[in-house]
Design a protein around this nucleic acid. Structure first.
Lengths: 207, 207
DNA sequence: GGTGATACTTAACGTTGTTAAGTCACAGCA
DNA sequence: TGCTGTGACTTAACAACGTTAAGTATCACC
């Protein structure tokens, strides 16, 4: 039964080609400015072919983003993260923001665009829920080990997430010369993270 | 010369009608889902008429957002704001987030969409620069009066802004049931603001 | 050599933002 | 009063978009 497998492989190959071409095009031109025809041209297939592999444009971008997000969660869990939960939150934040800055158009679709596909985002095994779980786990430990004051775990996690998301999304939206009044200050990401963390740390007597 | 003025007034009237219809349509259906033809239908003119008043769709939405943003800055400066700079930052944050939650589609266009029109955003008299100036001024006072540690004023202002923006944009993007793992916690906006403020307050010995 | 499935293409549909060309009312001048 | 020009508005079209119905070609299998 090697034939069916070869066909399967060939089909998967086209699918991969589509994702690859779409990845490059979306990343350089942005989701809105890339047409299905352009993706089709890039892989030298007809536009209709894409619809045999993906339901529609949104489904294509969703697959693309989920694939890229899996890269992030993989990079997060592969490398040995700091044992200290607060340092781990820092490391997670840095990985998260680096991903956003490096893939602004994918980040925009994942976290800055309302979409029906987000309905499934809170199911435990989706990439976004997974990376949230990383953060949440670190927060739990930070509280258990006395670094953070005991509080609503999800509230604190959401505040930390929204803090870093705020910086990343502003940097993506406003190019350096377009910030109101003053360009983004160097070190904004780190400083924002530190400020938010300071607000939660229980050991405020030092310094 | 009353005739020319009447004509001027009539033209301004149509312009206002367009803005009004567009405001309602954009707000309920979102920027992407409202067509120029729909706006034209709503005011019972041909689509082409809109192009005699606005260069294109983006220019229309921009005018719309600037108008709404002026409402925000007006509401900010009209009401007597707290003298205490930290309380004033709280009040500004509340007004800002209330605006975003009440006008998600305009907020999205202003702060979550990259656009060439943002080139002019850092000129001093544009609405976004004005409202940033409000915040910045409060930060300056908070430092002068010893509430905040002395630091880079714009860095601190940008952190405060991005903090509240992070929460607002997440709430706009993810509907309550679509948050990863857990819906947004009640009081998230207030708690986020307080956490960030705590990170800057110099009087950390209390509590 | 015929048959059926499967991957892909051609050609079109309806919508979109936008614009060139034309119409029509009416103020201003003779 | 009748002509004329200006400017607001419309008609009709353009190219490009996402998407799909119908058709073609390839090839494993009987």
């Amino acid at each position: 039964m090697g034939i069916a497998e070869r066909k399967e492989r060939e089909k998967e190959d086209v699918r991969r080609k589509i994702l690859e071409a779409a990845h490059n095009l979306f990343e350089t031109h942005g989701y809105q400015n890339v047409t299905m025809r352009a993706v089709a041209d890039a892989i030298e297939y007809s536009p209709t072919t894409i619809y045999h592999h993906f339901e529609n444009k949104d489904a294509l971008v969703e697959a693309l983003c989920f694939a890229d997000f899996e890269k992030l969660t993989a990079a997060m869990s592969d490398q040995p993260l700091p044992q200290n939960p607060v340092d781990r939150i820092r490391a997670l934040g840095r990985a998260y923001s680096a991903f956003g800055i490096a893939n602004p158009n994918h980040y925009r679709f994942m976290f800055m665009t309302a979409g029906d596909w987000k309905k499934h985002v809170n199911e435990a095994d989706t990439p976004p829920a997974q990376s949230y779980a990383f953060l949440r786990h670190a927060v739990v430990e930070a509280m258990d080990q006395g670094f953070f004051e005991k509080d609503d775990v999800d509230l604190v996690s959401q505040i930390l997430w929204s803090g870093i998301h705020g910086v990343v999304s502003l940097l993506i939206t406003f190019k350096p010369g377009q910030f109101p009044h003053v360009p983004p200050r160097p070190g904004l990401i780190e400083a924002s993270m530190e400020a938010t963390l300071r607000g939660f740390l229980v050991s405020r007597r030092e310094r």
